[in-house]
């Protein structure tokens, strides 16, 4: 039994890889055709719509208001979302490239030598 998280993931993967907006029906068919997804089964369109509205609430998905049936698309690319998520983690180190420089600037020559040797050997 696929969890809601798995379904959301499958839908997002489809929306991220498909250039044009998709209807819930098209999404359901695409999920059914997917070769070996975690979901890999026939879904009711209502299930797909539930997942889509959850994703919409989370700000990941938007729909074209004037079309019937609604066509859904992702708000930004997978790469943008990843970059944003990693920013949360990396925000502590705005200038990570400078770490080594800072280290070299603050330790004895012997320590710097050891580090250079260790890194050169990798």
């Amino acid at each position: 039994m696929a969890t809601l998280g798995d379904l959301e993931r499958t839908v997002m993967d489809l929306l991220w890889t498909t250039p044009e907006a998709m209807t819930a029906n098209e999404l359901r068919d695409a999920i059914a055709e997917a070769p070996s997804g975690e979901v890999g089964r026939e879904l009711a369109v209502t299930t797909v719509l539930t997942v889509l509205s959850r994703l919409e609430k989370k700000g990941l998905v938007t729909r074209e208001r004037d079309s019937r049936p609604h066509r859904y698309m992702s708000v930004t690319s997978r790469e943008d979302h990843t970059a944003e998520l990693m920013h949360e983690v990396l925000v502590t180190a705005p200038d990570r490239e400078a770490v080594l420089a800072r280290f070299i600037g603050s330790v004895s020559d012997a320590e710097a030598q050891t580090l250079r040797k260790l890194l050169g050997g990798s």
Binding site: A93, R96, E97, A98, V99, R102, L119, S122
Partner: peptide, 20 residues
Amino acid sequence: AIVGAGAPPSTSDALDDALA
């Protein structure tokens, strides 16, 4: 060092950069 530097260690530019 590699995780902290956020870059491959071979790029020695990082070593010559100004202090953070």
